[in-house]
Design a protein around this nucleic acid. Structure first.
Lengths: 190, 190
DNA sequence: CCTACCGATCGGTAGG
DNA sequence: CCTACCGATCGGTAGG
């Protein structure tokens, strides 16, 4: 079911439209038009517009959760772990520019029933990220400073890349990746 | 006219609601309820919901434009200029958390007639910022790297602060200011 | 500043 | 997957 071609098309078109116009302003009529069917026909594939938002946000959260799990399970050093997390953010932004924008900016329109578990997931990710930062500080590799500040600077240093992911080629993208990573390393290393 | 008490109340309530729910989801009925009048009474003070968005975005853009002008006119060194610009972003985020969020996230809902001049203003600001970065690189003070990357990292390193401006006291805020500025300096200085 | 109201658009359903 | 349609809500106006 989930992998029917139409359903995929609907999700891709929805993510793009949610990104472009915002969840509230993107109407089911917009989505249907993009897919090339009548608005009511959408409901053979989805239960509601809200359900689409929920799944986009959930899937994107899962990408981050899986990436974090890989990093935590690895035997990398703490500096390598930070590096891997920055790469994780960069890769997700590059390969899923639409869903990551929806994940970042439209989650507040999730229904209340989903909002709580969504925020819990975000919090878990943030806590794990901070643990890695703290162990790096404790080991003397990272400059000691507020974990909240450090965390927010790092993730926001990457949060503009998804605007460029369709405009630049792979080589230019890799240059940006290296520049971002160097900047963060210089900023955080003791 | 502009400074009538009611009009100010409407603008403050609108900025808060646009921030909290987004421009599209925040209805004129929501705004009226916050101000404590009937929805139709709003229109004695404003022409349209759109006009309110336009003015919020314009006023915030002006804060940045004025700050940039001060920096450009000053006889500061290039490192001091960068420092002053980071302070500018931090101060605006701290003192106008609602309007700066609207400015950042809701400008895409501006009417087409306003969108062009708005984007021109943003572009002008960005170009001036990059000029300062470039002169710092040319003088050997800053690490040479892509101006676009450097610009985006710097402004996004600050773009999370406005979420905290109502939660933390002045002392905690000044600590965060110093941490952010140190991080950016370390990242950019050659 | 209010009461009363309007046309447009919204997400979604019935029935085939 | 479509035609036909619905109740709710939207931004905004008329008139006082």
């Amino acid at each position: 079911m989930k992998h029917s071609k139409r359903k995929q098309e609907i999700y891709i078109a929805s993510a793009r439209l949610f990104r472009k116009k915002g969840y509230v302003a993107a109407s089911v009529r917009d989505i249907a038009e993009q897919v090339g069917i009548e608005p009511s026909s959408l409901y053979s594939h989805i239960k509601s517009k809200e359900e689409v938002l929920v799944n986009i946000c959930h899937n994107c959260a899962q990408l981050f959760a899986d990436g974090m799990e890989d990093v935590l399970k690895s035997d990398k050093s703490v500096t390598e772990k930070l590096d891997a997390l920055v790469d994780l953010h960069i890769d997700i932004a590059y390969h899923n520019p639409s869903s990551v924008t929806v994940f970042n900016d439209e989650w507040r329109h999730l229904p209340e029933s989903e909002l709580k578990s969504f925020l819990q997931k975000r919090k878990l990710y943030e806590d794990n990220f901070k643990k890695i930062l703290k162990s790096g500080m404790d080991a003397g590799h990272f400059e000691r400073m507020s974990l909240t500040t450090t965390f927010n600077i790092i993730i926001n240093s990457v949060k503009w890349l998804h605007f460029f992911s369709k405009k630049i080629d792979n080589e230019a993208f890799e240059t940006k990746r290296d520049e971002i990573k160097l900047f963060i390393r210089k900023g955080i290393y003791a």
